[in-house]
Write a protein that binds this DNA or RNA. Sequence first.
RNA 1: GGGUGAUUAGCUCAGCUGGUUAGAGCACUUCGUUUACACCGAAGGGGUCGUAGGUUCGAAUCCUACAUUACCCACCA
Length: 801
Amino acid sequence: MIQESEVVTRKVQSVLTVHIQYVFKGGFFVKLKSINMANQAQEISKAFDNTKETEIYSLWKESGYFNPDKMKELLGDKSKKHFGIPLPPPNANGDLHLGHTCGYAFQDLMGRYNRMTGHPTLLLPGKDHAGIQTEAVFTKLLEKEGKSKWDMGREEFYKQCYEFCMRMMTNAMKQEKRIGLSADWSRHLFTLDPRLTDIIYSTFYKLLDEGLIYRGKRITNICPHCKTALADIDTERMEIRGIFAYIVYPFEEEADRSEAKKLWGHEGIVVATTRPETMLADTAVAVNPKDKRYKKFVGKKVMLPFMDKALPIIADDHIDIETGTGALKVTPAHSPIDYEIGLRHKLDVVNVINEEGKMTGPIPERFKGMGTIECSKTIVKELDGMGLLVKIENIKHEVAVCERCKTPIEPIISKQWFVDMKPLAREILKSLKKGEVKVIPSGQQKALEHFLNNIQDWCISRQLWWGHRVPVWYSGGKELYDWKIDNPEKSIAEFTKETGKPIKGTGNVLKGDLQPETDPDWKGKPSDLWLEAETDMFDTWFSSGQWPFSTLKGLGGDNFEQYYPADVMETARDILFWWVARQLMLGKYITGKVPFHTVFLHGLILAEDGSKMSKSKGNTKEPTEIFDRYGADSLRLWYYNESLPGSNVPLREEKIKGNRNFVNKIWNASRFVLMNAEALGLKSLRSADVPLNSDRIKKTEEHVERIKKYIESYRFNLGAETIREFFWHTYCDKWIEEIKKEISEAPEGSKERSSSIAELVYILKENLKIMHPFMPFVTEAVWQELKKIGLADGILMVEQI
RNA sequence: GGGUGAUUAGCUCAGCUGGUUAGAGCACUUCGUUUACACCGAAGGGGUCGUAGGUUCGAAUCCUACAUUACCCACCA
């Protein structure tokens, strides 16, 4: 009689002598474990333990083969053309999210594959200083500590922000290593690294010398909170409650007034606006030329309340007859669309809002210094008192807000540095046509062409403290230089007359390594010269747009000559225009060659419910959580399967779990093969033992070729699917079972037995190699186990396929 | 308004340049205490490929229109 919980060991007769332990539980025998008597001492763990990943990563790193120079030594004559990917530098102000690790998974797959096919491979890592974003993050951090950047001063702020970034970077690098990124850490760079600065600057100078950079007056998004210009991409849309005010602008001529009174019940044209305070800067009223209501008044004038100024009524096709009253008050200084109308009709530009969002300029004293909202309320009240307010509607409308602090942006005319990108864009259009660059998926290539064909001038200046300073000095001061731009026909002598300020310089910009501010004894400074350094910073994309060549040039030596151009740019598709396009344009402009021949865009990772992941929604998932639970290989495989070019993929944990099962399958099948190989006394894989003509080996060779083709044509999903299908359902389910039988039927110690097991080991190794780029950790772990019993050498990472 | 995609099994998605009976993972049903693995194995159910036309010997695949949907750009007085 067997008692509950009694352990029973049963000896099983087979190739190996195996004892199986069962425990009697609830009326059943439940298998506890099998004990391989032949090598009980060397029992390998039953499931792949992903905490081993750190160890495996160190093995790779210590080998030195992340460095392509070392790879060249190893490969010797067999070394083919190098392969390179400038890794997109993540922002140095926070942790990585699943999108970053997705990119790394693809970059690393390509890197590992090329390394295993004879190409010394450079995956060049780095971090981006991310100007405005980091400044916002760090400023908020300071505010929490009760500090302010304004008290701290520019230099101290820069210093502390730099230290902050350095701290954040180490965290990010840990995660980069966990996904298995085989990057050359000896070449890791930060975009603000002093080695890169000169290269960034020389690009600016080249553009400036060739007349492609100019300082211009433009309507620009200004964030009154951050006090800087913002690119459109730095803004987002938000719905807010607002007002829609209908205001009468009376006609100048008595005759028109009475006619208007008859027609509409008011003595003038009624305009509708969401921002009454901007009326102080109006310089025209515009109507659609086809609008019958206003046709006869075009060319006449109306009086602008508060300002006692006559505004012309102009006709412009852009005006929508249906919106509001069909008559638009034109405020060129504070509305982008009005600015365009102003340009077409040569209207005056009057600035009444400053960069802090306060009323300013030639307006009645009582409004000066008011915030825009306060001013709007006052104006509406006063208009009502004057009988010029028709009605107010409460509406909901979308406004642009600062992406970082959510403050509504003010469109303000200001002077900024611009790059004329048209000539650069034309070059890339040519390259696309010639096939020097291709984009995967091809639909995005069309989008890129469309963008390049309609390219706008690029505002590269930001009023920040964090980033690269625009490297110019103004002879005679910035004010004089800007005055010259506004008054091209006047001589600088008139500057003093107009402004009452002395002229101490030529009014030009100077380049070069001048340090007049920090070096009071600056030699060569004439006493009558005043040099003012530019305080604006570059847009972050201006430096990251040079990443593929600035890094290699900055590293010095013959890095640039050896490794430029790179091969692939692998990134998310939402930054195709902002980053990829600019890398292409600046890269070709500076070096004459496109920086890479292939742009591969992976999909966007969404939250489980299909919405966009964002910290504010709280639906983000930490990569660390996934690594801990399922291991890096499982996550990688999920990316390859799901994050296809041009798609958006919701995160599916069950799928990652399924991949974890596959990782375990590899581990266990290998464990079985290893145990048998050892038990059968297979000491090495001499070629004589391996039946190279066998059907199974031939099929394996075909399989490997097929996977290679998939990788080379960037069809990673098919590769990932096929390695799984082949290993699991052909190798494990069919061949291992077949060979089990063959071995047990062959006489002990026979040649057939050793040949069979050798075949099994050989095919396993071939599979490990081709699976390695997809799932580097488990394959390397198995390889190292094989190595322990003499069936493999070195490390799998540099094994050649 | 302009651009680029997507629509295939209950769910998430593959299916290259048109060619056997349309696939995978997960989920589901039935069976299984085998010398690796239950994170396993065997067998199975489930789809008129968004709709309507067209090209073709042949269409999930190419063309046209429509519907639904996602993203990007521009704009919203």
